[in-house]
Structures are given as structure tokens and as C-alpha cells.
């Protein structure tokens, strides 16, 4: 698709997926922000990869908003020369999102890291293990309920427990 522009892509996305996709107001440093329902994520990803020339999944990350957890995807297109931001919301208890590793292999470790740091499960991920923290670590450190302390405070605490 050589005549692809953003002006045609986003309406095409909206008309194809209907209410499952919502185009949010964009910011100047990304091409657009698209909110996707978790169930249709892989289909949207496949559509963007095949028809939208977004061949490079640059970044998968997550934000803990306490009421919900937001998973973010940044996709690069060589034709459009820019990043598209996909956001998916999921519940804070047992958060889970379908994995996009079937579309972009490069998302593999990003998803593992998001599981490690925020505890988001990626359904269909081939090998969802912790990547940065050792296996068997009990916490997901980037949750807002996880707090940092001075090491001295921790020693005192450990003595009182």
C-alpha cells in the first residue's frame, strides 16, 4: 500500500472494528493514539501490521493507574515515519491482555518484562517467565502499591517483625 496515509488508516481502522476501537486525541510526538478493547487486540495488531505497514513493534509497556492498568504499544511504520500508540485497559485484579508475539516476535521480551514489573498476564505468550527479577520473586515492583524504602528502615522493620 503505497498511497497509505494516516488520514485513511485511522478511519479504516474505526470502520472495520467499530466500537472496539476508539481514536483518542493525538499528541504532537506520535501519529495517533488508538484505544483498543483487549479481546480484539490481536486482530487490530494483525491489521496494522499487514495493511498499515506497522512492521516494527518498538515498545510494550504498562502503567498502573490504581483503578485500572493500561498497557501501551508503540508501533513504528517505515512508510509513515512515525509511531502509533495503542492503549489497552485491563482490570487491576488478575490483569491480562492477549499476546501480540504471533504478529511481532520482537514483543516477546517486552511482554515478559511487563509481566515481571506489573504483573500483567499475556494470554498466548509462548514463554511467560520473569526476565529481570529472579524466578520466585513475589512482587511486581512497578505497581503503585509497592514502595521503596531506605535500606536502614528495612533492617529496622525486619528486626521488629
Amino acid at each position: 500500500m503505497t498511497d497509505l496515509t494516516l488520514a485513511t488508516l485511522l478511519p479504516a481502522l474505526e470502520s472495520r472494528f467499530g466500537p472496539d476501537v476508539k481514536v483518542l486525541p493525538s499528541r504532537k510526538e506520535v501519529l495517533g493514539v488508538v484505544q483498543v478493547k483487549g479481546e480484539r487486540l490481536v486482530e487490530v495488531a494483525r491489521f496494522l501490521h499487514d495493511q498499515g505497514t506497522f512492521t516494527h513493534c518498538a515498545l510494550v509497556s504498562g502503567v498502573d493507574w490504581i483503578e485500572h492498568i493500561e498497557v501501551l504499544y508503540h508501533l513504528w511504520s517505515d512508510a509513515l515515519k512515525g509511531y502509533l500508540e495503542l492503549t489497552v485497559e485491563t482490570a487491576p485484579e488478575e490483569p491480562h491482555v492477549p499476546s501480540v508475539t504471533s504478529v511481532w516476535r520482537g514483543a516477546n521480551w517486552h511482554e515478559r518484562e511487563t509481566w515481571d514489573m506489573l504483573g500483567v498476564r499475556f494470554d498466548g505468550h509462548p514463554d511467560l517467565r520473569r526476565v529481570l527479577m529472579p524466578e520466585g520473586y513475589r512482587f511486581h515492583p512497578l505497581r503503585k502499591s509497592f514502595e521503596l524504602h531506605e535500606p536502614e528502615e528495612l533492617e529496622v522493620k525486619a528486626r521488629h517483625v
Partner: peptide
């Protein structure tokens, strides 16, 4: 997952 924690106490 864990509401409260004493986290870094490795």
C-alpha cells in the same frame, strides 16, 4: 497482586 508489601526485604 499484593496489596501491601515489605518488598525490598530480600
Amino acid at each position: 497482586m499484593n496489596a501491601t508489601n515489605t518488598s525490598g526485604t530480600a
